[in-house]
Nucleic acid binder design. Sequence first.
DNA 1: AAGATATATGAACAATGATTCAGCTTCGGA
DNA 2: TCCGAAGCTGAATCATTGTTCATATATCTT
Lengths: 244, 244
Amino acid sequence: MTVASPQNLKPRKTPRQARAEATVDAILEATIQVLLSEGAGRLTTTRVAARAGVSVGTMYQYFPHKAALLYAVLKQHLDTIAEAVEAACARLRGEAIATIGEGLVLAYLDAKTVRIDVSRALYLVSADLDTAELLEGIWKRIHGATTALLASAADAEFDDLSVVTFTLLAAMSGAIRTVFERGAAPSMLQDLRMQLTTMCRAYLEAVAITRPTPLAKHRKVAVLMDQRSSQSLVEKFTEVRRQF
Amino acid sequence: MTVASPQNLKPRKTPRQARAEATVDAILEATIQVLLSEGAGRLTTTRVAARAGVSVGTMYQYFPHKAALLYAVLKQHLDTIAEAVEAACARLRGEAIATIGEGLVLAYLDAKTVRIDVSRALYLVSADLDTAELLEGIWKRIHGATTALLASAADAEFDDLSVVTFTLLAAMSGAIRTVFERGAAPSMLQDLRMQLTTMCRAYLEAVAITRPTPLAKHRKVAVLMDQRSSQSLVEKFTEVRRQF
DNA sequence: AAGATATATGAACAATGATTCAGCTTCGGA
DNA sequence: TCCGAAGCTGAATCATTGTTCATATATCTT
């Protein structure tokens, strides 16, 4: 495993032809798959290249480092999560705190459930990687969106809004992570959703300065890519692109 | 970094002389120090041995693997935490839920605060290590103690006790971890303690079937070993032992 | 169709790190 | 004081992995 890499985390060269774009996508996806199937300790450049159906040299044409590769994958993943949370917050704006509580829990569960394994694996990898600013940025987006959401609550106001948001997010995301790390029993998920909703609401009510009230909403998400296919990833991505 | 190591995580040989015991302690402590000062990626057997003031060969006399070494360190750390939580639970038995809520938060903060950096570093290292059963065992101890505590609450009963405990623990430990991972601002700690207490109480009250009430208690812990001394660790531990 | 540019290849190189072992030192007891 | 056992040493071995580069192939442009 390599050490932290301060500078030059950006791609060495940006793909100009469609072929190259497919290659880059394949490499990114391959990284995740190798991470999941082999573990952080066996995540080697050669293995990633092999899984992607590409040679090592190719990989180094787009990523100056192994670290840069990991950084790219991590960033992509975190961005997805942040977007999901921001979207949920936008949707819930102006609702009552009971609704908001339930909605936030759902949004978080969804965001983390989709590819939770990836979250975990990436988190482990980010150890010796210069991710401080990246994480900070993502956290700010999430914290900001949630703060705005709570400020818009129809039936409550909060004293120390920033601290409340912080605690709420830490507890929720932390709880979810803890649960998933212990090999989430699928039955637990249902319980967890209810319990966290209860906790979230109870906390918000406890720290709020209340007023009148309206009602609730819902939604659901599910995406997954099979990684057991033996077809090389470049082939797959190339095919996909051909369809356009 | 090495791969997962199914069997033979146990010491290759147990120290028979005091000298050897000091050596083993030094190695364990050195592992933690190297982990903290150099990061997981630079945690090599040679470096650990050097920091311990011992040769690599010596290390392999007591640990069959690098993995075994990490396992030993992790186990030692987790045991300490479990003990602290169990003690706190015993102390709080029979109190009112408001007291219990506050007490639990404190116990957790203390347990995790002492050497939180170690917690984090070890967690990262445990990636490619067969720690499933170890973690399971620790979790069971903590969960068990907390469940018993809640069952003993003077002023409340719970329906789905196991689930309540689970959620509570997940949220608290998760929140604390999340906070510390983001470079805990010391001022945040005070806020966090209050907010988590509020959350904990609010949640317990929300899911409880209540009755009459009493009041609260406190405590505090703080331990740290300076790691900046250049004195070799074996020397240090040997000295300590000489005092008996 | 041909040159120019972009992409891809993979053996070779250099660095690092886990692990061993044959010989040395220290300890404890008789 | 002396000997066997326990403990310690560290250069040598063996395996792995990150990274480069000279060469080959594909694609685009005109």
